[in-house]
Simulated assay, not measured.
Amino acid sequence: MSTLSYAHLSDRSLIRVGGAEAQHFLQNLVTADIDGMAEGGARAGALLTPQGKILFDFLIYRVETGYLLDAPSETAADLLKRLTFYRLRAKVELELLPEDIGVIAVWDDASEAGNALNLGLQAALACVTDPRLPALGMRISGSVADVSAMLDGSPADVAAYDLHRISKGVPEGLKDYDYSDIFPHDADLDQLGGVSFSKGCYVGQEVVSRMQHRGSARKRFVQIESGAMLPEKGADIMAGGKSVGALGSSAGTGDSAVGLALLRLDKVAQAKDNGIPLQCGDAEILVKVPDWASFSLPEPSTAD
């Protein structure tokens, strides 16, 4: 019996970026390195403000007709408008695809996901391993009805996928943070392959490069666990009566909960060293740095 799980991510939309100058256009705008990206390739990426904060985040797929941007539906029209603003006279085609062309996430069973990939190539626009983290599974873009009909597994919903994503420690825009509020390093985008530090200039590049070379990222999204339900996104994470960060998305797992939180790592380390518990609402929480992360809690002596 198949253990594959899949879900139509109805909260995601696709924008097609085509035309003779599509590669050059995106390369000069987004945080990811687009040059050398072959058909079937994928990247995580973002469009930043001039001050280096995340204005939009998305996944980028290289397809036969150009590129697909897999982005939150809530802001897809705004992203399309911003891309149009930057297009000027470039030979670039921009199109928001209809709702029946969407994104299917496939996870849980690697071998079955591989079968889904092979099937998806026959009817999908794009079929890739999630470029942020392979453990997240596959993402298939195409006709929602046709792709779903090909998959032999357990259909799930967006909430089930979000639990899977949270359990892997991967934050997403809007669900974990608001746009124009945080830097790519805060959102772990540098850890998840979404920022190139070797390509040429793009919007906000100078600020992001400075943070990288100075090692000045003090806030990071990390995983949290609790034996009680967690409050809504944005709730303060407290240590000794002082805020050390804010809650992102969370999900219940029986009588407990898991979540993601943007925390000042030095303050968390200091609280841990002093035996001060962390609280979010009425829930006491434990902090875990994701397994894939190259950062860790600093030594308490580095805290301000």
Rank of each mutant, 00 (worst) to 15 (best):
M1F: 14
L4S: 03
L4E: 02
Y6P: 00
L9F: 07
D11M: 11
L14W: 07
V17N: 01
V17I: 15
G18Y: 02
G18P: 11
G19T: 06
G19S: 10
A20R: 15
E21R: 11
Q23W: 05
V30K: 02
V30W: 02
D33F: 05
D33S: 15
I34M: 10
D35H: 07
G36C: 10
M37E: 09
M37S: 15
A38L: 12
A38M: 15
A38F: 08
A44M: 12
A44Q: 07
T49R: 04
Q51C: 04
I54A: 05
D57R: 03
F58G: 00
Y61N: 02
E64I: 09
T65L: 10
P72G: 05
E74L: 12
T75P: 01
A76H: 06
A77Q: 14
R87Q: 14
L88I: 14
R89M: 12
E93Q: 14
L94Y: 04
A105W: 00
D108W: 08
G114P: 08
N115S: 11
L119E: 09
G120I: 13
G120R: 00
G120K: 03
Q122L: 10
V128A: 04
T129M: 07
T129R: 10
D130K: 08
D130F: 11
P134M: 08
L136P: 02
S143P: 00
V147F: 01
V147A: 03
S148A: 14
G153H: 12
A156S: 15
D157Q: 13
D157H: 12
V158L: 12
A159V: 12
A160F: 10
D162M: 07
H164G: 01
S167W: 10
K168R: 15
K175R: 14
K175D: 07
K175V: 08
D176S: 08
Y177I: 01
Y177E: 02
D178R: 09
S180R: 12
S180D: 14
I182N: 01
F183E: 03
P184D: 09
D186S: 05
D186A: 07
D190I: 07
D190L: 06
V195E: 05
V195A: 05
S196K: 01
F197K: 06
S198V: 11
G200C: 12
Y202Q: 13
G204E: 03
Q205K: 10
Q205W: 06
V208Y: 00
S209Y: 00
S209R: 07
M211E: 03
G215H: 11
A217K: 08
R218Y: 05
R218D: 09
K219S: 13
R220A: 03
V222W: 00
I224C: 09
G227S: 14
L230M: 10
G234P: 00
G234H: 06
G234K: 11
A235S: 15
A235V: 05
A235C: 10
A239V: 05
L247K: 04
S250Q: 11
D255K: 13
S256D: 08
G259W: 01
G259D: 02
L260C: 10
R264M: 06
N274V: 00
L278C: 01
Q279S: 07
Q279C: 06
A283E: 02
E284K: 03
E284C: 04
I285Q: 00
K288E: 14
P290T: 07
W292P: 02
W292L: 01
S294V: 09
F295D: 03
D304I: 10
